[in-house]
Amino acid sequence: MSNNHNESILDVRHLKKYFPIEKGFLRRVSGYVRAVDDVCFSVQKGQTMGLVGESGCGKTTTAWTILRLHEATAGEIFFKTGNSEIVDMAAVEKVRLKEIRRYMGVVFQDPYASLNPRKTVLDIVADPLLNYGVKRDEREARVTELLTMVGLDPSFMPRYPHAFSGGQRQRIGIARALALSPSLVIADEPVSALDVSVQAQILNLLSDLRDELGLSYLFIAHDLSVIQHICDRVAVMYMGSIVEEADTEELFSQPMHPYTTSLMAALPVPDPHKPWSPELSGEVGKPSEKGSGCVFAHRCPYAAQICHDETPSLETKTTDTKDSHLVACHFADELDIDA
């Protein structure tokens, strides 16, 4: 953990992504799904920033918008490329995207769906290289290097994905993401489709690669225990907003937002002697019906009138650590909800 590194590689500021809702036969826009609603966070060089939340909280949409696979509705996404130029991914001209995206690697969730079954491992991993005009012999040499790096035997190159297990496929996916030596790797639920024993291997691999290659990660997951294990800093998202953000240790030892504590309480710990008392009732609301007030107010056991009326801003709360601990809760200072 590092407070002295202040070099951010990705700086997301007030990012918004609204999807229009179309109604009626004329498909008139009747409202917006505020999938990402005023989100700010940054990823420091060499660190892993985690986005955690349940389905529909906007974590994946955030990643897609950063990659400019979605156009941002508003906000800035400052990204420092490999040659130290800072560009705003939300505004940069489309012709430059290809040149910038080579510095962003992506690892997807489903290692079965994300690899083309008709291509060999060599073709899959070399695909980004081909895209950027790397010569044939150099490609093979690079793929050999990459496969070794992710713990696969380079002799697997001529084989097809179906011959590999889930964990091995995810290694292939990671090799592909690293092919162009990116500075930022966006990993969207990279281990949630894997078996427990394999999940641990992949998490260890990702940590090792980060340290060896000086990578920075934006790590998206729904599983708090995975997030806790790999991330340096974590932002908890709920219905398009960040409700709490802090360094991992701080967040898990002193959670301040009621949603964060509910998430933690909901997770069954693999120990029959530890009490398990999930208490959160209700379900995630519809982002299209989001009104004023705190996003979590409708499920929050502590909600008061102000929570329904005013949206709390994400603010630093006084804690004993040096790093900032941000919470969006009107009662963050008063509630005693330590996990």
């Binding site: 291997q201 225990s225 806790q228 898990f252 710990v269």
Partner: peptide, 24 residues
């Protein structure tokens, strides 16, 4: 034993996870 050791645990964070070698 390995299965239990390889799960990341909220209450006992480890720097490095124990793994089971190889694949099923």
């Amino acid at each position: 034993r390995d299965l239990i050791r390889s799960i990341p645990k909220l209450d006992r964070p480890e720097k490095r996870l124990a793994t089971i070698q190889g694949n099923v």
